[in-house]
Design a protein around this nucleic acid. Structure first.
Lengths: 123, 123
DNA sequence: ATTACTGTACTATAATAGTAATACAGTGGA
DNA sequence: TCCACTGTATTACTATTATAGTACAGTAAT
C-alpha cells in the first residue's frame, strides 16, 4: 500500500504523511473512510507504532483526518477544497521538478521531452 | 548561489550536496574549479561550518570533488561519464515526479499539460 | 463481564543532525 | 618570518528521529 525508504534522508513519518495526504487529496480515500489502525500499519510497514502515531497526528494537525479513541483514524475533509489542494500540491511538485532539472542544465524542451518519453515507456 | 530551506525535513548537508552535485554534473562547475571555502560558504548560507564539511566530505566520497589542505576543495571528475550521470539523475527526478503526481491521481496527459503550462509561465 | 480491538501516554535508549567553540596543520603572499 | 587564508580534528551540547516496552482508556461484540 505505502512504500517507505529507510535510507531516505526524509523522516519515515514525513514520507508516510505525504503519501497519505496525496491519497486523500486525490479522492482515492473518501471522506469518513477509516485508515489502517496504528498497530496494523506499523506492522505492515515494519516500522514503529510511535512513528505511525506521529504521522497520524501530523495529518490531524493539517485537518485531513480525525481520530476517535477506541474506533480508529478517519478521513475528515468536510468542506475542504480538494481540487484546490490537489492543484496546489501538484504545482509544488512541478516547481521542485523544474528547479532540480534546471540545476542539471536541462532546458524546458528537454524536460518535457524526457518526461514524455518516461510516460510512454511505462504507461 | 545555493538555497537552503531550514524547515525542510531533508538535512541541510544533503540539500547542499545535491545542489552542488547537479551543478557539477551539468558542467556548470568545470573540472579543477575551486569551490567556495568551508568558512566562506558557511557564512554566506548562514549555516555551521561543520555542516559544510559534511557536505564536502560526502561529495568527496562520491568522487566528485577532492580536497587539498591549505588550498581548498576542487571539482575532480577526471574520466567521469558526465552525460551518463546527468541522464541518470534526471531519470531519478522524473520517476519521483511521476510517482508523486500519480499519487495525486494525475494522468500522464495532465502531468505533461501542467508541466508545459508551468514552463511557459516562467520562462 | 470478558475479550479484542482501538487511540493515547509515558519512559528509556540510540543514532543522526546541527550548532558552537577551539585548536592544529598546510599553503602562499607580503 | 609573519600573516591570512585553507582544510582537518576534537569536544560539548541540543534537538529530532526512531525504536522498544509498558500501561491506560474508549468501543463494540460476545
Amino acid at each position: 500500500m505505502y512504500h517507505i525508504d529507510q535510507r531516505s534522508p526524509v523522516p519515515v513519518y514525513e514520507q508516510l504523511a505525504r503519501q497519505i495526504e496525496r491519497h486523500i487529496v486525490s479522492g482515492d480515500l473518501a471522506d469518513g473512510q477509516k485508515l489502517p489502525s496504528i498497530r496494523e500499519l506499523a506492522s505492515t510497514l515494519r516500522i514503529n507504532p510511535n512513528t505511525v502515531v506521529k504521522t497520524y497526528r501530523q495529518l490531524e494537525n493539517e485537518g485531513l483526518v480525525s481520530s476517535r479513541k477506541g474506533l480508529g483514524i478517519f478521513v475528515s475533509i468536510l468542506g475542504m477544497d480538494l481540487e484546490g489542494s490537489r492543484d496546489s500540491l501538484f504545482a509544488e511538485l512541478t516547481d521542485e521538478y523544474v528547479r532540480k532539472a534546471a540545476g542539471l542544465g536541462m532546458e524546458g524542451d528537454q524536460i518535457v521531452q524526457g518526461l514524455t518519453r518516461r510516460l510512454k515507456g511505462e504507461n
